[in-house]
Design a protein around this nucleic acid. Structure first.
Lengths: 332, 332
DNA sequence: TTGTAGGCGTTATCAG
DNA sequence: CTGATAACGCCTACAA
């Protein structure tokens, strides 16, 4: 283990000078700088993160908390986060929430000064005591696909997106549209509610009466979607279009429909939500949610907040996009 | 920011005693311990990771490097890793390789003592200089779904798995079996080669002559699978069964086959590889690769290696399993 | 422009 | 059982 002292000795200078070279301090004689850099590479020296963190009072690390559920979706977010961080030379401390129990444990320890410089929480409502602690300790925090009155966040307008999707279905002549979505979220209910609200609003605006039986609860999986479709088709008046709360659910619906001999979109229109990679390949009409962009933007906001701790929180909404493919009856 | 000194003062003891209480040292008077603990909770004290790392000489952090490709697959691995780590109270430093360029950059910096205590590399062959540095600096490292002569690793027997899958197809009476797999991997070629070898061996053992045209290269996506299927079906003697190198590819194949009016498995048998979540829901016959188990086991091996640096490297092979569902002609 | 020394928060050693 | 005190490796005034 080679330390800064070794480098100093090898270069025939003091540790202060080495430190200055390391941090790009301007007032170092070019010759000295060269000598130091030579010693550094020759000795293969790397500054110790731990020592540096202690001395500087910051860790150059940000913590990212992501829930496990809807895995495809949030892996994309994570990718955006990782990419943005890698460019900026920050370390990424990952915590994945495996369940509600985990949640409390993690949030109790999350975003401690001296451990991480900033906190990025993906799709999980932060408990109030976390928020209090964060603001009191002045550690920067950003929420992704969630919101909080006093914290910076980046997300999308799920209500508008769902409404747009429903409107699309309506414009195609469908009057019997069912929403197949999860109904409870262990980490954040807001997204589900927004989507449901969008769906209802769109139908109401079109003068279509609300049918509770068209809003069955589904598990967050293809299997869940398939099962829920069975239930819907058993109704006296089955729907002619399905608006799924997630692409995974939609895939299950499509597959089950085909198994039952129905054609999609001929006999049943199906659309998803999220636009995971498979959606494109399966020709699923869906709502594109800019997942990795949210992650990337979240990091940018976080780094900005870290640089300027006194800036007021902002709330960024990224645009979604209706992606029309084959599963609803319109060719792309 | 409350430090150990504040706690010591508040409890009327020396910092040494507080430190002992913190680390669960046995020889502390119960009364003292209680007083200290009281002060700790009262003040909301948390030890600084940075200071602790500097003093202890370890960071309680392990670094995980995962390639981006085949995303569903490796998110599962990551989940296993994260879960195993969370239980053991270690921080997880994540690096995702976004491409071959990234690879070199990351490997040049990976596993530095003073930054992380151990390194877990998922599915990417470590360059020799990394290995050298690791062993010289005595930092523990474990490979997941890759191997190296001098490093501990956990993986599966891809050759045997592919052979078993091919044998299954053969046993179903198929003689014209094509392998639709990626042909190049920017991070580690070994898995692809092993799978191909397994496929060829199984066919050879069955006395079936090798047809190069039955081994077209595919992109690692559903789209890639679909396109490759088109090419195969244009052959004078098209295959009757497709062995895909990944479930995502298989899904594309199945979908394209149906689009062309073929029934699966009636007109075409298709099987995947990996057993991602969707495979189950889509009834895809596939090879189950224990992804999160590999991650978890990798962490266990790594922690063990960290505790016992002089233990020789081991090579763990986890079992795969042939999962027969509907896509190959046998009901589950 | 460069060297020196104090301090960052903990741990660990060593007397008591 | 407990309290000082020297590391740990680096950064940053302060002097020179």
């Amino acid at each position: 283990v080679v330390t800064i002292t070794d480098v100093a000795r090898a270069a025939g200078v003091g540790v202060g000078t080495v430190s200055r070279v390391l941090s790009g301090h301007p007032r170092v004689a070019p010759a000295t700088r060269a000598r130091v850099n030579g010693a550094i590479t020759r000795l293969g020296y790397r500054p110790s993160q731990a020592a540096r963190a202690l001395a500087r009072g910051r860790t150059d690390t940000i913590q990212v908390v992501v829930p496990y559920l809807t895995r495809y979706f949030y892996f994309e977010v994570l990718r955006g986060v990782a990419a943005a961080l890698a460019d900026r030379d920050y370390a990424l401390n990952l915590r994945v929430l495996d369940g509600p129990a985990d949640r409390d444990r993690v949030f109790a320890e999350a975003g401690r000064r001296g451990h991480v410089d900033g906190l990025l929480v993906v799709r999980a409502a932060p408990p109030d005591d976390l928020v209090t602690r964060l603001t009191r300790a002045r550690v920067a925090a950003v929420l992704v696909d969630t919101a909080h009155p006093t914290l910076t966040s980046v997300g999308v307008d799920h209500q508008a997106a769902a409404a747009a999707m429903a409107a699309h279905l309506l414009s195609l002549g469908h009057g019997r549209i069912a929403l197949v979505d999860r109904v409870n979220d262990p980490f954040d209910q807001a997204v589900l509610s927004a989507r449901r609200r969008g769906y209802r609003d769109a139908l109401a605006r079109a003068g279509i009466r609300h049918r509770p039986e068209y809003e069955p609860a589904s598990e967050w999986s293809a299997e869940g979607g398939a099962g829920t479709l069975d239930a819907l088709l058993a109704l006296p008046e089955p729907p002619t279009a399905i608006l799924a709360g997630g692409d995974t659910i939609a895939i299950g619906v499509v597959d089950r429909a085909r198994q039952r001999g129905l054609t999609v979109p001929g006999d049943l229109a199906v659309c998803g939500y999220g636009d995971i990679e498979l959606a494109r390949h399966l020709g699923l009409t869906t709502v594109h949610v800019p997942m990795s962009a949210m992650g990337r933007r979240g990091v940018e906001l976080l780094l900005a907040a870290m640089e300027n701790p006194d800036a007021p929180p902002v709330r960024v909404t990224l645009p979604t996009e209706l992606v029309v493919r084959h599963s609803c009856g319109i060719a792309p």
